[in-house]
Design a protein around this nucleic acid. Structure first.
Length: 944
RNA sequence: AGGCGGAUAGCUCAGUCGGGAGAGCGCUGCCCUUACAAGGCAGAGGUCACAGGUUCAAUCCCUGUUCCGCCUACCA
């Protein structure tokens, strides 16, 4: 015990001179990242040699904070980027942030609320100033966190979606689309968030199933109140806005009623009965459908088909609107004005019931839409909005994916993408918020006409409501505090009426409008910059599937339209990160794994490696802290391998020809080459998980568990030829390992690499390992297989029999001496070293020789077949025969064996069960095993 | 409602020629062997969801069923 402690103390003294015993990420990461930045390794230049390789970062919200989804997304990008950089490509990783319109505005509005004020109170200009201030303050956070993650972006090129350059691109795109007739303004039914007070596009609405109710309401015929049509609805409060009832023209129940009218309950209005094949499903409900054009998308379309009026019952805050109620001729005694939708429903249902119109209420499963930013229930809302006519843009975007000019990885998403694109609806791009790119549309105050210009400058404000063009009144009324700004300079003169004053549209563009331009706007478009020429189309896009439609689809459409080329070649789509239970991470559930906390605790490399190893295609990632801990241990393992190697490097190194290399050296080079080949292949196929797993297995199990163990005897005598050569291979292989692993674990590999003998100033710019066919050695790997079996067999037998660790074990092999036997003989030293204790290798065909028996008499004896074609039954028969014929010597020795018995007849079931497997039978039976097919011999320890 | 994905060890998951059932974590036993106890060695543990079919042979291919997840969606 004492000796052990002393040994450990001595070892610690020795090692502390070089590296600490455990890897401490903290003091390594910051230091190296600063060096990399200072030396400009991440800087891209169009003049760099090498084929361009470019990734544009999915820009995170400028005021956001790094969550685990970012960590995954950016770890994978950094792996690709570092790998390609080391391969000598001209690499650009373009970083940037997104202004994230609604999300950011909401954040600042919450701050204002806490201060007891509001954006309306501040007014548009001061509010925007406030957001810019917040952006200046918080905008750096996410960037610093990405740096912490090791992201090797070219930070000098950092862009923001509301930069002047990018804003210019946005206006240019808007104008060109307008000129091409692909942008239009119109009063349409859109999705409206009554909390954010803005329109949303279709995909910004999240659907959620709820248990609702279906209400059946009688609509009496106007000319025959005794007869009634019964309609079914889930939203009875909107019935006041009905402007027709539809039935199927082939429905025998109702077809004779088409053209007649019903008296709408709770109102004094008569509304027509129309025939409609699209809206009405004969099988569903009662077969009669109320048409409420201002509050339902289908009904809106039906109203277009039949030329029906639209009555909007709701205010922007989703309250019952006084004017709308009057228009609907609703019974004033109901007192619905300014009641919420929910209250209105109660009132209307109660009134219908009292007056005998409500015939039935039943449970009904239905879906409601919620705002993706604030989860408020959205309302279909009639309002003037800007739209992009999307079909002409979608068609080429479908084609490039069909053609394979853009590859989606995994391919499973192709169908999803195509299906969505083929069914795509016009894109509502106007938002009634303030934070974003204001729409470059100006209205003449005299004639109301709109003018779209590339640049417009406001020169004076007016509070005169009278000066507002009719066309913008709704928008300005809604945006209280947004003072109309009059422009006298641009456009200079209204071409239609000669008017000289203009008011800009107060709305801003959907955030995704500007991020849709990201791949080319960040490279300088619309100018023909060298960057654009060099790096566009970009190479790979790495993104989560949650923004496939929001962002990726728009980039493809915009890229094709404005550059005539695809924005990227490959789209790698990774999964969502969930918690260990598979739940979506959210702050409210409290199941968030904070990547910053993980980096702090386990090191950035461990986090990155975890995320990479879990990035299997087609499955969500269930992240757990234990997993990260496991890879922290992996980093530590690597670290200690480095310590071991450094500890043995004091001494000369000698390069030698391949032929003269030692067995362990030849073996590890062959395995290393295999690792290089597979890691590279897996990366080319975006199989980060497999690449990571190969690295893990190679480094831990092949390199550390076997190679470093095998090498120890070679290093015993410091100046020996063996030691000199081994040192050379140690450096050669371990340096290669650092390069191979660097894209995954950039920090620890740099730290280790710098302490190894090396050429060059940083691992970041070293070449990535390439295949070395001359390192391949099938023979060596075959021999290693035999060695491994011998060693494992010995250890297994020893463990199961509780055989003392230090006591010798005899080992004998069964096979042809010329082949495997000879191999084993040459590896005797290694078998002895790895198998612990004294091991003798004997050709098995001498068995039972006196040598073997002598060993057996002394202790545990292990034998195995090393050649595949031994017939078990025959072999066992031979053993019996030899014993029966009985060399006197054999019998004499056998008699001496107190506790070991040789069994010449393996039980048939044992043979059947264990044939071909390296396996020990039972606790009291030692042995023995096989190479490929055959069980070989069984020794039984007698019970004491 | 449609589409897609998944179901393999206690847990999380690999397994893309149709022939060997695997890894990590967890668990059990032994071991502080001079790189590493965040370690080493060994071990237990599976009807590859279910039912059919094709085949000499199926975790893998086909059909159907069940359960879970996701995406899309205008059934009032």
């Amino acid at each position: 015990m004492l000796r052990c402690l002393l040994n450990r103390a001595a070892a610690r003294l020795m090692s502390e001179r070089q590296l600490d015993k455990t890897y401490d990420p903290k003091q390594v990461e910051e230091r190296w990242y600063q060096v990399w930045i200072d030396r400009g390794y991440f800087r891209a230049s169009v003049t760099h040699p090498g084929r361009p390789y470019c990734i544009v970062i999915p820009p995170p919200n400028v005021t956001g904070s790094l969550h685990v989804g970012h960590a995954l997304n950016n770890s994978l990008q950094d792996i690709l980027i570092r790998w390609r950089r080391m391969q000598g490509r001209n690499v650009l990783w373009m970083p940037g942030t997104d202004h994230a319109g609604i999300a950011t505005q909401n954040v600042v509005e919450r701050q204002l609320l806490a201060e007891g004020t509001s954006r309306e109170a501040l007014g548009r200009e001061r509010f925007l100033q406030r957001v810019w201030e917040w952006k200046a303050k918080a905008g750096d956070t996410i960037i610093q966190q990405l740096k912490r993650l090791g992201a090797s972006c070219d930070w000098d090129r950092l862009r923001f979606t509301m930069d002047e350059g990018l804003s210019k691109a946005v206006r240019e795109v808007f104008v060109r689309l307008y000129e091409d007739g692909l942008i239009y303004r119109g009063e349409r039914l859109i999705n409206w968030c009554p909390r954010c007070l803005t329109a949303l596009s279709d995909i910004e609405v999240e659907h959620e199933d709820i248990r609702g109710k279906m209400y059946y309401i009688r609509y009496p015929l106007a000319d025959d109140p005794g007869t009634a049509l019964t309609v079914a609805t889930t939203r009875p409060e909107t019935m006041l806005g009905d402007t027709a009832v539809a039935v199927h023209p082939e429905d025998p129940r109702y077809r004779h009623l088409i053209g007649k009218a019903v008296r709408l309950p709770l109102t004094t209005r008569d509304i027509p009965i129309v025939g409609d094949t699209i809206l009405v499903d004969l099988e569903f409900g009662t077969g009669a459908v109320k048409i409420t054009p201002a509050h339902d998308f289908n009904d809106f379309e039906a109203s277009e088909r039949h030329g029906l009026p639209r009555i909007s019952l709701l205010t922007a805050r989703a309250q019952m609107d006084d004017i709308g109620l009057q228009e609907a001729q609703a019974d004033p005694s109901l007192n619905l004005a300014l009641k919420s939708v929910h209250q209105a429903r109660t009132i209307v249902v109660e009134a219908l019931r009292e007056r005998g119109f409500l015939t039935k209420v039943e449970d009904h499963k239905m879906a409601i839409g919620k705002c993706y930013r604030c989860k408020t229930v959205v309302e279909p809302f009639l309002s003037p909005q800007w739209f992009v006519k999307i079909k002409p843009l979608a068609e080429p975007a479908i084609k490039v994916v069909e053609d394979g000019r853009i590859r989606l990885i995994p391919e499973a998403w192709v169908n999803n993408y195509l299906g969505w694109m083929r069914d795509i609806k016009d894109w509502c791009i106007s938002r009634q918020i303030w934070w974003g790119h204001q729409i470059p549309a100006w209205y003449c105050t005299s004639c109301n006409r709109e003018h779209i210009v590339r640049s417009g400058r406001a020169v004076g404000t007016t509070a005169e409501g009278g000066r507002l063009p009719e066309i913008t009144k709704w928008n300005y009324t809604l945006a209280q505090g947004a003072q109309p700004v009059v422009a006298k300079s641009v456009p200079t003169r209204c071409p239609d009426c000669g008017g000289q004053e203009f008011v800009q549209d107060p709305d801003v563009l959907d955030t995704w409008f500007s991020s849709g331009l990201w791949p080319f706007s960040t490279l300088g478009w619309p100018d023909e910059t060298p960057e654009l020429k060099t790096y566009y189309p970009t190479s790979t896009l790495v993104t989560g599937l949650d923004i496939l439609f929001f962002w990726v689809a728009r980039m493809i459409m915009m890229g094709l339209k404005f550059t005539g080329d695809v924005p990227f070649r490959d789209v790698y789509i990774h999964a969502l990160v969930r918690d260990a239970e598979g739940q979506k991470m959210s702050k409210s559930k409290g199941n968030v794994i904070d990547p910053l906390h993980m980096m702090e605790r386990y090191g950035t490399d461990a986090l990155r490696f975890t995320l990479a190893s879990m990035a299997s295609p087609g499955r969500d990632i269930k992240l757990s802290e234990e997993r990260i801990e496991g890879y922290r241990n992996f980093a530590n393992k690597l670290w200690n391998a480095a310590r071991f190697i450094l500890m043995h490097l004091d001494g000369p190194r000698e390069d030698i020809s391949a032929a003269a290399r030692s067995f362990p050296d030849r073996w590890i080079l062959s395995r290393l080459n295999f690792a290089i080949r597979s890691v590279t292949q897996e990366l080319e196929h975006y199989r980060f998980d497999r690449a990571a797993s190969r690295l893990y297995h190679f480094i831990w199990h092949e390199y550390c568990d076997w190679y470093l163990e095998m090498v120890k005897p070679f290093l015993q005598h410091n100046d020996s030829v063996d030691a000199r050569r081994t040192r050379h291979t140690l450096v050669e292989t371990f340096e290669t390992v650092q390069r191979l692993l660097h894209p995954f674990m950039p920090f620890i590999t740099e730290e280790i690499w710098q302490t190894l003998p090396h050429e060059g100033e940083s691992l970041v710019i070293q070449p990535y390992p390439e295949e070395r066919p001359d390192w391949d050695s099938k023979d060596t790997e075959h021999a290693f297989g035999i060695l491994e079996q011998c060693v494992t067999t010995t250890r297994t037998a020893r463990a199961l029999l509780n055989y003392p660790p230090g006591k010798p074990v005899a080992f004998f092999a069964w096979g042809s001496y010329e082949r495997e036997g000879q191999i084993l003989e040459t590896l005797q030293g290694l078998v002895a070293h790895l198998g612990r204790g004294v091991v003798q290798v004997l050709p098995f065909d001498q068995w039972p020789s006196s040598n073997v028996l002598r060993l057996a008499a002394e202790g545990l004896t292990v034998g195995m077949v090393v050649e595949g074609d031994v017939d078990l039954q025959k072999a066992l028969a031979r053993i019996s025969r030899q014993r029966a014929e009985g060399a006197a010597e054999v019998q004499r020795l056998e008699a001496k064996l107190k506790n070991v018995e040789f069994t010449s007849n393996a039980p048939p079931d044992v043979v059947a069960e264990h044939q071909g497997r390296l396996k020990v039978l039972q606790r009291d039976q030692a042995v023995l095993l096989s190479s490929e097919e055959q069980l070989c011999a069984i020794m039984r320890r007698r019970a004491p």
